[in-house]
């Protein structure tokens, strides 16, 4: 007779199958786990994006969507710049800057490259510094600091105005246009403006006689006075030489005499060159006769 009580249910094997065991062990491997948790989702996203972008039409429409959204934002009226105001510059300069910038207004402020505008303005010779900012009511404010002309430089190509750092400002038609500025000449004169300034300051006592400074061999300065007098300064320490000359001049009234040049290149021994007439007079006074040279 079969048992009356409930038949014992089929007992499931509690042991994991070989595959379940292996899968559990695999899942407990940290590298695999990390891969499943981060690597696989990333790969899935990358795959989805890749599939979406694989077709050119979808790519085009996506870029178009992005561009139009961007346009919509940038073209809003509160971002539009309608006016450029240039301050601190002469009318000619501001016109030139305006022409060079060539801004098509109205334009969105988000598209303006203020840095590029600043660089363009500062590329003008006459501009020392430019400050560009978007002012109130979306006015593009360009504040320009102009270079102040301090020297006139006579070159082979003509006259050039320089500022006190030696930077070119503009050309000059005639010396008489800026007679108030000191004149320099010679190659590389603009490189040594600071020295020229010092020499000029030192030579102040005979400033009324000074015609200009000449840079010799991009190395030293000559002072040119009226009556074709020339003072040759040393390359080293020209200011001291000028001061020495002033002392001599005060004592001996040197420059009033009939000299063509004073050579101060050797500080120990100034050399004077007399004008021919003065030389003859001096020789006659000393009773020296020189046979007249006959040039063949």
């Amino acid at each position: 007779m079969q048992s009356l009580s409930r038949a014992a249910p089929y007992r499931r094997d509690p042991a994991p199958s070989r595959w379940a065991y292996k899968m559990q062990r695999l899942w407990l491997t940290p590298a695999f786990r990390g891969f499943m948790r981060f690597g696989v989702p990333l790969l899935m996203v990358a795959l989805a994006v890749g599939i979406f972008l694989a077709s050119p039409a979808r790519r085009e429409s996506l870029w178009g969507m992005v561009a139009s959204a961007k346009e919509q934002v940038t073209e809003r009226p509160m971002f539009m710049v309608n006016l450029v105001s240039i301050d601190g510059a002469s009318p000619e300069l501001s016109d030139a800057v305006r022409a060079k910038l060539n801004l098509r207004l109205p334009q969105s402020a988000l598209k303006l490259d203020l840095d590029a505008i600043r660089v363009t303005a500062e590329n003008f010779d006459a501009v020392a510094r430019a400050v560009v900012r978007l002012g109130a009511a979306n006015v593009l404010q360009i504040t320009i600091t102009e270079r102040q002309p301090a020297w006139v430089w006579r070159t082979e190509g003509g006259l050039i105005l320089l500022d006190d750092t030696g930077h070119r400002i503009a050309g000059l038609a005639a010396r008489a246009d800026r007679a108030d500025l000191p004149l320099i000449a010679g190659e590389g004169a603009n490189q040594a403006i600071a020295e020229a300034q010092a020499v000029l300051q030192a030579a102040n006592p005979f400033a009324n006689r000074l015609r200009g400074l000449v840079r010799i061999s991009t190395r030293r300065w000559d002072l040119v006075l009226d009556r074709d007098q020339r003072i040759l300064l040393p390359a080293e320490n020209p200011v001291a030489a000028v001061e020495g000359l002033i002392a001599l001049n005060t004592a001996e009234n040197l420059l009033a005499r009939d000299l063509t040049s004073v050579d101060l290149r050797n500080p120990q021994r100034p050399v004077l060159r007399l004008a021919p007439a003065a030389l003859d007079a001096m020789r006659a006074a000393h009773g020296i006769t020189v046979p007249t040279e006959t040039k063949s």
Binding site: P16, Y21, T29
Partner: peptide
């Protein structure tokens, strides 16, 4: 082998390491 697998799997599950 099955019994060992059972024990090892349960212990791994408890420890959460392989």
């Amino acid at each position: 082998e099955r019994a060992i697998r059972t024990a090892v799997q349960a212990a791994q599950k408890m420890a959460n390491v392989r």
